[in-house]
């Protein structure tokens, strides 16, 4: 489902003497449907960079990122948008939404974008928010003022409301209490069971061990630091 082939990434800072900073080189691995792969390595190894490359948020310098039939490294913006809408979900650590939009709308949006009837989309959003124990009185409020844990759960609900065939999870259990952590873990397990290919970053080792079939050490892809 997800195939990374000889992927590399370099940042060029044009306004700081055109410094080239290579951050990733020769990354190759793949994830099959129903498989969960953890990215590991020390901080700064490039785990988040790799995730962002796969999502198309960063532009690859060379190599291929094949998700289904699309090579994210070379695709047109509209192909990536279609991919994100239909195939590739992403639970990031940060919530970025239009201010004043109610939480249930934020969560239902991926479904609305797919053309799901409004009532059904909202019902599914509500069900997921309830399962994640977000108090119902918050559903009609904008999540911008929520606590970190509440925002995290909104993010998770948004990422799981549509059954994406491929999922990227960036610390999905961070800042959650035991009960909600358990809900998230079972959501991930259910996604695996329905055949989603999942790539995740987990600092939560217990979660990683429970969910992941394999680990990929990103440190291997870190280029030697040039002086």
């Amino acid at each position: 489902m997800i195939q990374i082939e000889n992927l590399s990434k370099t940042f060029t800072l044009h306004n700081q003497g055109s410094a080239d900073i290579p951050v990733l080189t020769g990354a190759s691995f793949s994830v099959a449907p129903g498989e969960c792969v953890a990215l590991t390595g020390p901080s700064g190894a490039g785990k988040s960079t790799l995730m962002r490359l796969i999502y198309g948020n960063y532009l690859a310098a060379s190599g291929h990122i094949r998700i289904g039939h699309v090579d994210v490294a070379q695709a047109e913006p509209r192909q990536i948008i279609a991919l994100r809408r239909e195939t590739l979900g992403y639970v990031s650590q940060f919530l970025r939404v239009v201010p004043r939009v109610p939480t249930r709308e934020v969560v239902a949006e991926p479904l609305l974008a797919l053309g799901t009837p409004r009532e059904e989309a909202i019902a599914r959003a509500d069900a997921l928010l309830a399962r994640l124990n977000l108090p119902e009185r918050l559903w009609s409020l904008s999540p911008t003022t929520f606590s970190g844990g509440e925002q995290q759960r909104v993010n998770i609900a948004r990422g799981f409301v549509h059954p994406y065939p491929a999922l990227l999870l960036d610390e999905p259990t961070a800042s959650l209490d035991a009960g909600n952590r358990e809900v998230v873990l079972s959501l991930v397990e259910e996604a695996k069971a329905r055949g989603a290919a999942i790539i995740g970053i987990f600092h939560d080792e217990a979660a990683r061990d429970r969910l992941c079939d394999r680990q990929v050490d990103v440190g291997v892809f870190t280029p030697p630091r040039a002086a």
Binding site: L13, H14, N15, R52, G56, N57, Y58, P77
Partner: peptide, 21 residues
């Protein structure tokens, strides 16, 4: 040119980098 979040988060051109920063 490019995907909005890609251009804003990983700008390639010097001018865009200046604009974003």
């Amino acid at each position: 040119t490019g995907l909005t979040d890609q251009v804003l988060d990983d700008p390639q051109h010097g001018y865009t980098q200046l604009l974003v920063s």
